[in-house]
Computed example of a mutant assay.
Amino acid sequence: MAKMLYSVTMSLDGFIAGPGADMSWLTDHLGPNPVVDDLIGEVGALLVGANTYRGDDPHKNDEGAGKAFGGGWEGPQYVVTHHPPAESAPGVFFRTDVATALADAEAAAGDRYVNVLGADLARQCLEAGRLDEVLTFVAPVLLGDGTRLFHHPGGRTVQLERVHHSAVPHATALWFKVLSSAG
């Protein structure tokens, strides 16, 4: 059965995108990453939020523009949106609700990971008790404002267990298993 993994790069002050969903800050922190290289082979499908799908691309000025993991991964992508376009790219499937997209992505992934992309979608998976793991790359930069890694007004306690940590080029990798959440 597929596991749900949220993988993301964030600034040291906890932002995954800058003001206005700007992702240009990430360009300086891309490059060879053995943790990502190992992960790519374990990902069976992507579950993508609408803002992430339509958003800024840190690879927009290189050959990886518009491609998952900058072109390092290919496979089915399930995009959750209330406004699906009339046409889509090959391998991209639009779903109007999280539950359907999740079920379709899990079926496509088989016994590999469904990699969640998008802060709001990851939060929804966590709140539904469906997020199994979180892989965060902490980049050595402070953004000061933008989109938080997990934002829950009023707070929420989520118990995690660290399963891996390492220094990688351009960041520090922190991989956690989601144990429980309350609130």
Rank of each mutant, 00 (worst) to 15 (best):
E74F: 14
D57P: 03
G72N: 07
R130S: 14
A108L: 04
A65N: 03
A119V: 01
T157Y: 04
S88A: 14
G144H: 10
T81G: 04
G55W: 04
E133F: 12
D145V: 01
D62K: 03
R54A: 13
H151Q: 06
G71W: 06
P85E: 13
V48Q: 03
E87T: 15
H83M: 03
C125G: 01
A128N: 12
F93N: 09
W73Q: 05
R130L: 14
F137M: 09
A89R: 12
N51C: 08
F150T: 01
N115R: 07
L126H: 08
R112D: 08
A89K: 13
H151L: 01
D56Q: 02
D111H: 10
V158I: 02
F93R: 03
F137I: 00
D62E: 08
G66K: 02
G110D: 07
V116T: 07
G129M: 02
G129F: 03
D132Q: 06
G154R: 00
A122W: 02
R123K: 15
V138Y: 09
V79D: 02
K60R: 15
L126E: 09
D132C: 01
A65C: 05
V158S: 04
A108R: 06
R112L: 07
T52D: 12
G118Y: 01
A68F: 13
E74H: 15
F137W: 06
E63M: 12
D120C: 08
T157D: 05
H152I: 03
T100M: 06
